[in-house]
């Protein structure tokens, strides 16, 4: 790691943020958002996942060469899910 790692305060703040997001998700799930239900829930999940990856796993501070594989996995998994969804929806 080239920069100072995250300290206790940063980690705790992110943790509280994650709890808040989870609670938001839970509360929203008992309201009928119509067709927005799925995108909203998954959007919140994506934000949480990004926070965990960036701060807890420390991707935000890692050297670029260390996270090539992580970025690649993110790109390739979105490509896989995206292209398969495209096929299933237009078949």
């Amino acid at each position: 790691m080239s920069r100072t790692p995250f300290g206790e305060q940063a980690i705790t703040r992110v943790f509280l943020g994650l709890l808040a997001l989870a609670t938001t998700s839970l509360v929203l799930s008992s309201h009928d958002l119509g067709s927005g239900q799925l995108p909203v829930a998954l959007g919140i999940a994506c934000i949480k996942a990004t926070l965990i990856a960036l701060v807890f796993i420390g991707v935000a501070l890692a050297r670029p060469s260390h996270i090539i594989a992580v970025i690649l996995a993110a790109v390739m998994s979105s490509a896989m899910i995206g292209l398969v969804i495209m096929d299933v929806m237009t078949r």
């Binding site: 690649l72 390739m76 490509a79 292209l83 495209m86 096929d87 299933v88 929806m89 237009t90 078949r91």
Partner: peptide, 25 residues
């Protein structure tokens, strides 16, 4: 290595894959 990841659907041209997906692949 990278672009090769996005071409797999050309094995499905006659498998009933959608014509849009086939075109992209």
């Amino acid at each position: 290595a990278l672009v090769g990841f996005l071409t797999w659907g050309h094995h499905l041209f006659v498998a009933g894959q959608s014509a849009y997906a086939s075109g992209a692949f």
